[in-house]
Amino acid sequence: MRAVLTTAHGDRSVLALKSDHPDPAPGPGEVVVTIAATAVNYHDIFTRRGMPGIRIDLPVIVGSDIAGEVTELGDGVDASWLGQRVLIDPVFRDGKRFGMIGETCDGGRAERIAVATGQLLRVPDGVTLEQAASLPLAYGTAWRMMVTRGRVAEGETVLVLGASGGVGVACVQIARLFGARVIACASSERKAERLRSLGADEVVNYAERPFRESVQEIIGKPRMSGDGGVDVAVNFTGGDTLIDTQKCTRLGGRILTCGATAGYELTLDARYWWTFEHDLIGSNGWEPSDLEALLQAIDDGRLAPEIDRRFPLEETAEAERLLEDREVVGKVLIVP
């Protein structure tokens, strides 16, 4: 079968398209899924570059967000799975092995994949396989952070830093789904326009002006009276942005995070933490129940994942470049 392998740690030149990669064979309790689409995530790029402290056996087929159709059954698998449209939850949750598909074992940048039935979620009729393939790493992470952990509610004001990436776009859409007002941060007017089209009520360009100044101008400075500031601030940027985020968050507000793309050694102003009684809420990945809730929201017509572009396997390096150069808003898919 055709597959794109990450052959070594390095730049995009280490990506190699193979036309004769061995076909997967399902073991007991497994199925073969013919892949309809796999999403490109920054995790794929981090795997290619090499992550400190994490050893990856190379070569590997990356791609963790995968959807397709079950076309072959292994021993002991119920025949009802054959022909089913499925989303693969890439995380190993059985306690027998750790990590996830597309990292510690071959993933979705291929025509087919063998996977255990315990990692399959049926895709409802009203959800396309491309929409399903957009979900786990970005939308699943955002849903758990915003809904399961963050409890975003109707009428609240939500600030989203890094709003134009996969997780950020999902946060904007999910906040709007729950009836919140959204202030989104982006680095260009082109991205700002896309975010407005997705439901952002206000967009601040942090490349032109510090986001704290713009947000406070829109919503007011947080006051001990309870006036000013956002109810919820989503900050998975990290780096030097946390104190300014605190200064945008109202009395009793929540600051949510699921990562730290600009650096994990953070400086926090404890005075704002205790004085304004902020809740700092962390969220790690997703659970199958989060993915099921997303599939239902799409099936109900309440949510539509934002897919920026689609590429064939032959153009995988260009798909990664777009993410690295921050030229996309939403998800990029590889369609084998």
Rank of each mutant, 00 (worst) to 15 (best):
L5E: 07
T6I: 13
A8W: 04
D11K: 11
R12L: 14
R12I: 05
R12C: 02
S13N: 11
V14W: 02
D20V: 09
P22R: 07
A25N: 04
G29N: 11
T34D: 10
I45W: 02
T47E: 08
G53V: 10
I54P: 08
I61A: 08
D65W: 00
G68C: 08
E69T: 15
T71H: 03
I88T: 00
F92R: 14
R93F: 05
D94P: 08
F98P: 02
F98W: 13
F98H: 14
C105I: 13
V115H: 02
Q119L: 06
P124S: 13
P124A: 13
P124F: 11
T128S: 15
Q131H: 15
T141D: 10
W143L: 12
R144V: 06
M146R: 03
V147Y: 00
V147C: 05
E156A: 09
V158W: 02
L159I: 13
G162L: 09
I174Q: 02
I174T: 06
F178G: 02
F178E: 08
V182Y: 08
I183R: 05
A184T: 06
C185K: 01
G199R: 08
G199K: 08
F211A: 05
R212V: 14
S214I: 00
D227E: 14
D227G: 09
D231L: 02
F236R: 01
T237K: 03
T237H: 01
G238V: 10
G239P: 03
I243A: 09
T245S: 07
Q246I: 01
G252I: 11
R254I: 06
L268A: 13
L268R: 03
R271P: 01
R271N: 15
Y272G: 00
Y272T: 03
W273L: 15
W273N: 12
E277K: 14
E277H: 12
D279T: 07
L280R: 00
S283Y: 06
P288R: 11
D299N: 14
R309Q: 14
P312Q: 09
L313A: 12
E318N: 10
E318P: 01
R321E: 15
L322P: 01
L322D: 09
V328S: 15
I334G: 01
